[in-house]
């Protein structure tokens, strides 16, 4: 297992285990800071080439469509068969994902254990 200093306030921690990249996101995400989320996460994905990405969103009370666009881009970067698993969703974030019908392309899990089981 490897842990990383992300150097980013919005991605508070990241580590890899096998072919899975685990990352925790913190704070509200909107157009003002989604570019930071995008840059940090794309860098982590490029350096580690994971097959699965587990994002802990427990610290994200709110996100907008610019954050959703980042999640979709991350899924595409993982390549064929890649999975983005979102855990610990707060109600507003879950509601937005459902409206965007992204609950059909991402795996939603209660927590990291369920994410590991589902993946």
């Amino acid at each position: 297992m490897s842990e990383f200093d992300t150097g980013s306030g919005i991605v508070s921690s990241a580590r890899t285990s096998g072919d899975t990249l685990f990352a925790s996101v913190s704070g509200e995400v909107d157009l003002n800071n989604s570019p930071e989320l995008r840059g940090t996460m794309l860098d982590l994905v490029a350096r580690n080439r994971p097959h699965k990405l587990v994002l802990d969103l427990a610290g994200v009370p709110y996100m907008d469509s610019s954050a959703i666009a980042v999640l979709v881009e991350l899924l595409r970067r993982l390549g064929k068969g890649g999975q983005v698993i979102l855990t610990n969703l707060q109600p507003r974030v879950r509601g937005l994902l459902e409206i965007a019908r992204l609950d059909s392309i991402f795996v939603l899990a209660k927590n990291e254990q369920e994410a590991t089981d589902k993946g």
Partner: peptide, 9 residues
């Protein structure tokens, strides 16, 4: 809307 395509959300 295609959820895999950003924009329009």
């Amino acid at each position: 809307h295609d959820p895999r395509v950003p924009g329009g959300l």
